[in-house]
């Protein structure tokens, strides 16, 4: 690009093509365009694009747009504090909500752990007694199960023999 306008101030060409340049600048640019085919081409093509874009009309607006909006506003005005607090999360996509929930959960856990570091009941004689009793009861239960199992297998052997 050797042309000073095209290299340093190309938006001027766009503005000129779109009819958005003030008269004095446009007059000066026209003189330049007369001798610069590259800039001339940009202006011609830009003007054509500008006209082409005019053909894209926006679709008509639904007649009940305002009614729907005011209904939402009414709902909002009459909503509880909890609904208002939860509002930002309602429209949040799942891919944003999941990491946020996971982070919040981790932070909560970290908070609980920091509040109660190593929350293990201290070993007292009473606790030790309870633990010993539990072990004893479990061993008794296992023994009982073993006896049932032995009796059951003896019975089935007896039936088979008959």
């Amino acid at each position: 690009m050797n042309c000073p306008i095209e290299s340093r101030n190309p938006e001027m060409l766009v503005d000129h093509a779109n009819g958005k340049l003030d008269l004095a600048t446009a007059r000066g640019l026209k003189q330049h365009l007369a001798g610069c085919s590259a800039c001339q081409e940009v202006v011609v093509r830009q003007a054509a694009i500008w006209r082409a874009l005019d053909t894209w009309e926006a679709a008509p607006i639904s007649p009940d747009f305002d009614r729907r909006l005011y209904r939402r506003i009414d709902e909002e005005v009459n909503s509880s504090w909890w609904e208002r607090a939860m509002r930002p999360f309602r429209t949040m996509p799942l891919r944003h909500a999941l990491p946020l929930t996971a982070t919040a959960g981790l932070l909560l856990m970290a908070g609980v752990l920091l509040q109660n570091p190593g929350h293990v009941a201290p070993a007292t004689p009473h606790n030790e007694l309870v633990r010993a009793n539990q072990v004893e009861r479990t061993l008794d239960d296992l023994d009982l199960l073993r006896q049932f199992s032995a009796a059951d297998s003896a019975e089935s052997t007896h039936h088979d023999a008959m």
Partner: peptide, 28 residues
């Protein structure tokens, strides 16, 4: 501003129903 907002959003997202929904959110 209703018209200009809806038309702008429509041209951005290129779906009229979505554009109206988003525009409602704008005014809300």
């Amino acid at each position: 501003h209703r018209g200009s907002v809806i038309h702008f959003v429509y041209r951005l997202v290129q779906e009229q129903a979505i554009a109206e929904e988003l525009s409602q959110e704008v005014f809300l």
